[in-house]
């Protein structure tokens, strides 16, 4: 009896803190966001007013007419989803494959690819901006040296090149982490399998598609899900590189600016919840497709 009571006390003590933390910082905050999304602050009465779904209808109108860049923000967030899932992760996978093949200087390359993950994003974006600086940047200088001066651009200051440049930064900075996880998974494939396939005369391409990918599929699914979810939280990259100018903004950045510049808590909450729901649906669909693909291999 006594033992049972102390067990219960132990469980309560262990669960109380994380539960309280979750209740305050997750549940309560999200309830507040839902409440804000159906309210607006009215300066006439000095209080919040229930406005039903007006914030949502305003948001959809803003998206469709691209007012305050909401249309571009939603478009870009889904482009980031595509970038993370279809470009960064496949590149990281290919890089991981070659690095595990122990190509010359593979340790050096592994470190180089991972470095962006241990340096502050503020420093990284600053270095990136210097690199693409219109007059003193190395990129425009190289273009000059090789006689392609006509291709010089204000890369981060023009709507025709800025978004592509921010995406390029994301690829550069995003490969390392995925590479680390995927290299680890590839490294755990039993050597006997790879040696046997080599003896059977399997080419690198065949090995990559028919042995490596199926063998590490659960890891690939994990990095894809994490990458897909991360696309809906992209904020600092456009904020630090272009301040969201020149068609590079994202929904999280738009949400923050709506609150800080316009005190638009209602609209920002509606946007935040909408992108969260869309993000959930997108990630769910991706997960289902990947699971189906995984079952085929099983």
């Amino acid at each position: 009896m006594k033992k049972n009571t102390s067990k219960k006390i132990f469980i309560v003590a262990m669960l109380a803190w994380p539960l309280l933390h979750w209740a305050i910082f997750t549940l309560y905050m999200n309830i507040q966001t839902v409440v804000y999304s159906v309210q607006r602050f009215n300066y006439y009465i000095g209080d919040w007013q229930f406005v039903k779904f007006k914030n949502y209808s305003k948001l959809f109108d803003y998206i469709l007419t691209n007012t305050d860049n909401f249309g571009i923000a939603f478009r870009n967030t889904f482009l980031w989803l595509g970038l993370n899932v279809f470009i960064i992760i496949p590149i990281a996978l290919v890089v991981a494959y070659f690095l595990t093949k122990k190509i010359p200087l593979y340790r050096f390359f592994s470190s180089v690819f991972f470095i962006p993950n241990i340096i502050s994003i503020v420093v990284l974006t600053m270095a990136w901006s210097f690199m693409w600086h219109p007059t003193q940047g190395v990129v425009n200088s190289i273009l000059d040296i090789i006689g392609l001066g006509s291709l010089k651009q204000t890369w981060l200051g023009n709507s025709s090149t800025a978004l592509g440049n921010v995406f390029l930064y994301c690829v550069w900075a995003g490969i390392g982490w995925n590479n680390l996880i995927l290299s680890g998974a590839i490294g755990k494939i039993p050597k006997e399998i790879l040696e046997a396939s080599e003896l059977d005369g399997v080419t690198n391409v065949q090995e990559f598609f028919h042995i490596i990918i199926p063998s590490i599929w659960p890891t690939i699914v994990t990095v894809v899900i994490i990458g897909a979810a991360a696309a809906f939280r992209v904020f600092l990259q456009p904020q630090l590189l272009t301040n969201g100018q020149y068609g590079t903004t994202s929904v999280p950045l738009r949400v923050v600016k709506t609150v800080t510049e316009d005190s638009g808590y209602g609209l920002a909450s509606a946007a935040g919840l909408t992108i969260a729901v869309l993000g959930f649906i997108a990630v769910y669909i991706i997960k289902s497709l990947l699971d189906r693909l995984g079952k085929k291999w099983e």
């Binding site: 219960k8 469980i11 309560v12 669960l15 109380a16 539960l19 309280l20 209740a23 305050i24 549940l27 309560y28 507040q32």
Partner: peptide, 21 residues
């Protein structure tokens, strides 16, 4: 055990809501 967990969760939720008022 489930009952204990439920009671704990309800208590936490009530406390959270009260904190906001």
């Amino acid at each position: 055990m489930k009952k204990l967990f439920s009671i704990l969760l309800v208590a936490v939720l009530i406390l959270t809501l009260l904190a906001g008022c």
